[in-house]
């Protein structure tokens, strides 16, 4: 019972949505399902947010290692909830849009969350450098091919690529690095992308069928 009804819901909803693709008047089901998802997700957030509060509150109450950071997290979370729920500082008051510029909620987004976000994203530059360094020590054929392709594309996007190979005569212009980079992008790269994407879609089809037929259901838990 605890697994049968969810299985029934899963199969019915999935099948109906597959069918809805072919029936023009049923296409709005897809939109409805997506709205249902949004609503369910926000209810689920009460569980997630609750979990966040519980985990950090426990750390604080037990004074376990790093509890002081948990205080900071809880404070940050609480401040956002209060400023966002009551729309404090919103020029249009409680009726104003949450993304209204000037509200405390948006100020915190702009001056705290946004720089943190951009900087974390920017750390990628360091990581891309360390990953490239490791790739330079390519040990086998596959890694060497990856490295060479990456190097040509990288060089092709810089002025250095032009400078290095502009001496190559026009009839062999394809060998000039920028042209070679374009060729790699448009031919072998495209071929690889296509094989990956066709494979992925077939993988999704077989997995979706396993889910709809109830063969794969570990995520629904057991009968307990």
């Amino acid at each position: 019972m605890k697994r049968q009804i969810p299985m029934l819901i899963l199969s019915a909803v999935g099948t109906l949505l597959v069918v809805s693709v072919f029936i023009p008047s049923a296409r709005h089901w897809q939109e409805d399902a997506s709205l249902y998802f949004d609503i369910i997700a926000v209810f689920a957030f009460f569980l997630g947010g609750g979990n966040l509060i519980r985990v950090h509150a426990e750390k604080v109450s037990r004074k376990s290692a790093g509890w002081i950071y948990s205080v900071v997290t809880l404070l940050g979370f609480g401040i956002m909830l209060v400023t966002g729920l009551f729309k404090i500082g919103n020029p249009n008051g409680i009726a104003g849009d949450i993304s209204q510029a000037g509200s405390y909620f948006q100020l915190l987004f702009q001056y705290v969350m946004s720089p943190l976000n951009s900087t974390m994203y920017a750390l990628l530059a360091f990581y891309v450098a360390s990953a490239s360094y490791r790739a330079f020590r390519a040990k086998n054929t596959e890694a060497t091919i990856l490295l060479v392709a990456a190097f040509v594309i990288l060089l092709g996007r810089t002025a250095l690529g032009v400078l290095l190979t502009n001496w190559i005569p026009a009839q062999f212009s394809v060998l000039q690095v920028p042209n070679l980079a374009i060729w790699i992008m448009n031919a072998p790269n495209l071929a690889g992308q296509r094989a990956i994407m066709i494979g992925i879609s077939l993988g999704v089809i077989s997995m979706s069928l396993r889910l709809l037929l109830g063969i794969e259901r570990s995520y629904l838990g057991g009968d307990n």
């Binding site: 947010g49 966040l52 950071y69 948990s70 900071v72 997290t73 809880l74 404070l75 940050g76 979370f77 609480g78 401040i79 956002m80 909830l81 966002g84 909620f105 915190l108 987004f109 705290v112 969350m113 943190l116 976000n117 974390m120």
Partner: peptide, 10 residues
């Protein structure tokens, strides 16, 4: 810690 708290709330 600030990032987690503020962004989860956001």
């Amino acid at each position: 810690a600030i990032f987690i708290g503020i962004s989860a709330g956001y």
